[in-house]
Design a protein around this nucleic acid. Structure first.
Lengths: 149, 149
DNA sequence: ATCGAGCTTATTGTAGACGATTTAATTAAG
DNA sequence: CTTAATTAAATCGTCTACAATAAGCTCGAT
């Protein structure tokens, strides 16, 4: 006798839906800056770490060049970043923030921060949930692909 | 003075990463059936509710026809479902499971169920995390778009 | 019966995401 | 010092995801 799998009892589905809601939340919150969520976290990473290669940005976001190259070309076109091939190592492309990005930083921090208050979670609860989701991510990452085949 | 936003302290980023890990988990677990995660949850929904219109499937998954139509065409080509315009209401396209899908149901339930054990969470913990993620989803859904602009 | 409002699906365009391949640059080994 | 292996970015193909639009159908009101 096989146990049926009910969608609404699956953690994967809850996370799948929550991720899409967050995407919608940020698409609204960032609409005035014409930034998507993936573009926004790219910007956040650069605010935090300064100029980095495409590879290094990818490591902070878990994204590869196949995703980042076109995304960054759009961000360059929109004036958020500049991309320049490294002189020391010509395989690398260094990504840095523009004046516009630096000028807008505090405004973006403030606006997103104020949007977050609508989420209406006490600091402690927010952190508890985050830490549990991180645990799920760690458990998933620890499973070797071979075991699933 | 503006508070900087650190990526690794953001719940959205944890959920974003966990969602991608789940995607990878299922792409491995379902590789032998040539099913992607979105295709798998479409299948789960049909196992649970039986024949439905595209619209109704979309409601159970929070996906629109722009996503589902091409996805379902691929599933039809792969022999999982059949699509037929309703005779009663010719606006509807009814989606039903094939013999293959019904024959494979228990095997898929069993295989995915066994893969889930590698996640290694006690039932209680799993449910607690799921319920908290659901709460986040509900809070996000409750925010009117206007407040974020 | 016919018209039009509203519903439903299909289509199109843009953006992510990722595996696989390709190209170019660097490093390591013999 | 040349060749082999490695690395970084870009490219390609396929599959989501969703907004906007188009097209077709139903049903209610006249």
């Amino acid at each position: 006798m096989t146990k049926p799998i009910r969608l609404n009892e699956q953690l994967c589905f809850s996370i799948y839906k929550a991720q899409k809601q967050f995407n919608h939340f940020y698409s609204q919150a960032l609409a005035k800056y014409k930034l998507s969520y993936p573009q926004y976290i790219t910007l956040l990473s650069l605010y935090e770490h300064g100029t980095m290669s495409v590879k290094e940005v990818g490591q902070t976001l878990n994204l590869d060049s196949g995703t980042l190259t076109p995304l960054m070309k759009r961000m360059e076109k929109d004036g958020w970043i500049s991309r320049k091939r490294s002189a020391q190592d010509e395989r690398r492309v260094d990504v840095s923030l523009t004046q516009k990005a630096n000028d807008m930083r505090d405004e973006i921090y403030d606006h997103v921060g104020s949007c977050m208050t609508y989420l209406d979670f006490p600091e402690k609860v927010y952190e508890a949930i985050k830490s549990q989701v991180d645990t799920v991510d760690q458990h998933l990452t620890a499973i070797p692909d071979e075991k699933l085949q």
